[in-house]
Write a protein that binds this DNA or RNA. Structure first.
Lengths: 232, 232
DNA sequence: CGGCCAATTGAGTGCTCTCAAGGCGAGTGG
DNA sequence: CCACTCGCCTTGAGAGCACTCAATTGGCCG
């Protein structure tokens, strides 16, 4: 991976490496537009809805939850961002959602303004950005189906299978999922209450589909059954 | 609005007008990549999930519903597409959702392949496409909040206010909304059942917020109250 | 008029929520 | 080392909102 290090290359008038700009977005080859990496503590906010949006962020380590609030405090978590994910990319003038660390994290801020310049110079990057947006869009639509049309059991099964696939691509412990988020977070992601999430996990444990050695560790005992539940 | 008429300019090797390509996406200045307009009857499918995706479509007249199915037949309607909207743009190799006309419609097909060529020649268009994707993304996320966290009454109120705003921008009858879709369609968009949608509309009528001269016409009598309900 | 489809309305059920109590683990201080 | 606190999780009991099933109405068209 090409890396301009901790310089904010374009913002400082530096040159951009074409190969870097045209690389896969997820592999962070946006380096020409990035600024210095930043450490953030758990439970801090990276930004809040309606804040002016000058940067978006690539998660390097840790985890975020990206959420929206209704005026009376009801919360919906739009996504959990893991290393490699972008948060705040969808912003226009202002952020349209809030991002909070759920773990101590490292992020790489990317200025929208310098991104524009990079895109102007390297059209290939624009295609990558469109591709990224399409993927995020596809995920959001899948999530809509899940939230709108699945039962609590199916929702939790869907959640676990997706998390299992994501963790598998990060580390290599098939069937073991480390829950970085609380029951309440999961509930706000699936459109449930924390009690229903807890009950559903207990139910899955009783029926032998999963094991819960600790409340934050899920061991998937029957992946086939879990996927059956998730896909219907 | 610039228009190359019914020619498929780039696909046929024609020249592209730069001003047209850099114009606002919603105003259909994608003409350089478009093919001849196509008429389609109500209840026909433009494409189905998993079909190979060669084109996406700009709706010129009529209306579409864009939906996904679960294996057992449960349906979720991701969006209703009206004139000016794009359907199928989010596809990768294959379509990841289905599009069905709910009215006799006219669409303008746009080939992904020729789009790529146009984007390569006119980088400004790429920015527009990213902007479009961002907007669609923002809508999907708002819809997630609605579906996951609002009550039936709030969902229907949200739906009506959004539809009222959209129709207002099309024609000029503030407070009068023509429902192009059935109760069942609305239900599948909001994550409800058709009976609940019907009951909720009746309830709104009884409380004087709306009137229902016909089942497909909604007259909004108290927009403030409706927006209160919608925003929670 | 009769047939058909969509919408409405009612009755009863049930899934998920609300409210509440109790448990568990980590961290802290005496 | 233990008692205490605090946050999070689990579990139970009961309630309610939306669902299911079913009957009826209304509009449209042949």
């Amino acid at each position: 991976m090409l890396d301009f290090g901790k310089s904010c290359a374009l913002a400082q008038g530096g040159n951009c490496n074409a190969a870097g700009c045209a690389g896969a977005l997820k592999q962070a080859n946006l380096t020409a537009a990035t600024c210095a990496s930043k450490q953030v503590a758990a439970h801090e906010h990276q930004f809040r809805e309606f804040d002016e949006a000058t940067h978006f962020y690539e998660v390097q380590e840790g985890a975020f939850c990206v959420y929206k609030l209704l005026p009376d405090g009801r919360r919906y978590i739009v996504s959990f961002a893991m290393p490699g994910d972008l948060v705040g990319f969808g912003a226009d003038e202002n952020h349209n959602l809030s991002a909070e660390e759920i773990r101590e994290s490292t992020v790489r801020p990317i200025a929208f303004r310098s991104l524009e310049q990079v895109v102007a110079s390297y059209p290939g990057l624009a295609t990558k950005l469109i591709h990224h947006a399409k993927q995020e869009l596809a995920e959001a639509k899948d999530q809509l189906v899940t939230v709108a049309r699945k039962t609590a059991l199916e929702k939790v099964a869907t959640f676990l299978t997706r998390l299992a696939k994501r963790s598998r691509s990060i580390r290599d412990e098939p069937g073991v999922v480390n829950l970085l988020m609380t029951r309440s977070d999961i509930a706000d992601f699936l459109g449930l209450t924390l009690e229903t999430v807890s009950r559903t996990l207990s139910r899955m444990k009783r029926s032998g589909i999963i094991d819960l050695p600790q409340s934050t560790w899920v061991v998937i005992r029957d992946m086939d059954e879990l996927e059956m539940l998730a896909e219907v």
